[in-house]
Simulated scan of single mutants.
Amino acid sequence: MANQVEPKLIPALFEQLQKERFVTLSTIDYETGGPNVNAISWIFAKDEETLFLAIDSRSRIVNNIKNNEQLVVTLFANESTYSISGKGNVAVDKIEGIPLKLALIKVAIYEVRDVMFYGSKIDHEPTYEKTYDKNAADRLDRQVIEAMKKA
């Protein structure tokens, strides 16, 4: 049912965010004050009220969050589209044990809204394929998700 609003993740969404997956992240651009949208895959729900994101430390996303903590994660799951609003902060500038310089963003969720338009459902969630060395990608993905689980 469209337009449901919750103060935290519902069980089905929490379960979907226990592994890497495609989402979009919207932040406020620190230079223009306008919206900034990025596709990311390193996301993990620590609990129903907390998300962790692993972001390249050089990314504009990091500066955006340092200047304005408001953000929205858009998730396609559970046959619908969800807007997860929260306040983000850079919890760690460089996650230890990862070969890339990744920042750990901690997101305190304050609203989860089903934003799917009335009378419809998602019948195919977005999928993606890594285009670089599959073994290296799988190893890195495991390292990043494990680091977020330990955070």
Rank of each mutant, 00 (worst) to 15 (best):
K106P: 00
K130S: 09
D141P: 05
R21T: 14
T32I: 10
G97N: 00
V5K: 15
F52V: 01
D141K: 15
L9P: 01
G88Y: 06
N135P: 00
L9N: 01
F52E: 01
G86E: 07
V107Q: 03
V23I: 12
K87L: 12
I145D: 01
L102H: 03
E48M: 04
T81W: 10
K8H: 04
R113F: 00
V112H: 03
Q70F: 09
N135A: 14
I95W: 08
K46R: 12
L71T: 02
V115N: 04
Y82M: 15
P7L: 08
I28C: 04
E31K: 14
V144Y: 04
W42S: 11
V62S: 10
G119V: 11
F14M: 07
V92C: 06
E111D: 06
P35I: 07
T27N: 02
I28A: 03
E79L: 10
G34W: 05
L9V: 07
V144R: 03
V72W: 02
E79Q: 15
A12Q: 11
F76G: 12
L17V: 01
T127V: 05
L13P: 04
M148A: 12
L9I: 03
E69Y: 13
Y110N: 15
N36E: 12
I55P: 01
G88E: 06
M116H: 02
N135W: 03
E129N: 12
F14A: 07
Y110G: 00
Q143T: 04
S83P: 02
K87C: 04
K101D: 07
Q4A: 10
E20M: 14
L100H: 02
R60A: 11
L17T: 07
N67L: 05
P99E: 08
N3K: 03
A39T: 11
D123L: 13
N3Q: 06
I10K: 08
D141F: 14
R113H: 05
K149E: 12
M116C: 01
V92D: 08
I122T: 11
E20A: 10
T131F: 13
E15F: 10
K121W: 07
